[in-house]
Amino acid sequence: MSESALLLEIAGLNAGYGEIEVLHGIDLQVRDGEFVCIIGANTAGKSTILRAISRLVPHVTGTLRFAGADLAGRASHEIPALGIAHVPEGRHVFADMTVEENLLLGAFTLRHQPDLPARMDGVFELFPRLRERRAQLAGTLSGGEQQMVAVGRALMLQPRLLLLDEPSHGLAPKVVEEMHDAFTTIHRRGTSILLVEQNVGLALDVATRGYVLESGRIALQGSSAELNQNPAVRAAYLGI
């Protein structure tokens, strides 16, 4: 089996806020075209990994490379232009802007954007409900729809790597399922995904490979099938 090129490479990553170190020596890779998930309990540091990639964490040491480029020393606003789109935890939409304006702002860093309507159509195909609500203020949408806006906004960048931070948190089960179907579609269209998820069962369902994070360290890693069969994972996270 031939392996595709390394897209994201993290080695010996330590990260924290002020005096407190949250991540201790993380090694993690995402290959081109992979769908990888990070699972683990609350406060294990899952979100901090994504925030470190996006340069949103103040204190970071270790190697962070994306498609051959060193991420160290870059400012957070420079990251999207490299092809990394981040959907932060909690539905961070621009509440007083329309759905359309939210989506357009996602492609804001691109200088030449002749294909914006086509990109927006791509998002509407994925989330037909957003097409109906394109002129509505994002703040008036339901929680699930707001999450669709946040994901759609990230997709406007046509990223090589999509970072998803707890996208199903606080959503109704039916919406969660819809959301995960969308992620599978996005992956099939060729975008690599790094998903942080508390819902371990769902995460291992959609992702091909996973890392288990415990207290800021990688405790386990393997294919989703392996992790699904692992007795420790089953006991701790799947409640079986």
Binding site: L56, I79, P80, D96
Partner: peptide, 12 residues
């Protein structure tokens, strides 16, 4: 409206 979201879409 949302400083966190502004940051991740690449606004300096």
């Amino acid at each position: 409206e949302n400083a966190a979201a502004a940051e991740v879409i690449g606004i300096d």
